[in-house]
Amino acid sequence: MTAAQLATAVRSAVPGSVVGHEKGLDMPTLTVKPEKLVDVCTYLRDEQGKNFLSAVSAVDHLGYGDEVAGYFGTERGRDINSTGSWGAPITPEPPPKRFAIRYHMAHVGDGPTDRLRLQVWVDDGEEVPSVVSVWPTADWHEREQYDLMGIVFAGHPNLRRLIMPHDWDGHPLRKDYPIGGEPVQFTDAE
């Protein structure tokens, strides 16, 4: 099923949920509203056979696509986009909000896997509904993204830090997390 067909199907099942769709380089990609996420996921699992959640990946787009001239440790994070002296500089499209949470799902069973990517956009402080009730495997995936990226998944039964120490400050994968020179955070460091 192409992205457009899928978007139409999801729209008719969950009205007002799909914001956009694209073909994608590797798989169809649907953009949905965060408040409709659980409904869309339930529909995709039950009616479209997407019974397997591969991964939940959160991406911080702070400074994405900006012209940043500077050095490591600028206000906007870091200079990742220094203009090369060769090759055509392509500017990516500006993101609608700061964080994108992408859900990669597939069909496991008979027939092709029919992979699909679902994305929701949120700003810092906004919550995303948890999909643990749809795919139980999302438990640790969401805890990992909460831990490293600081996305709050509303309705998650056990949203605690998973990878970093339980008393860690900050979320290391954010672009504004200082790299280099941070204080050593150990409980016995005082």
Binding site: S57, V59, D60, Y64, G65, I80, N81, S82, G84, P89, I90, T91, P92, L173
Partner: peptide, 8 residues
């Protein structure tokens, strides 16, 4: 993001 390092 079009740069020489992965964005994520």
């Amino acid at each position: 993001d079009g740069g020489t390092q992965p964005w994520r």
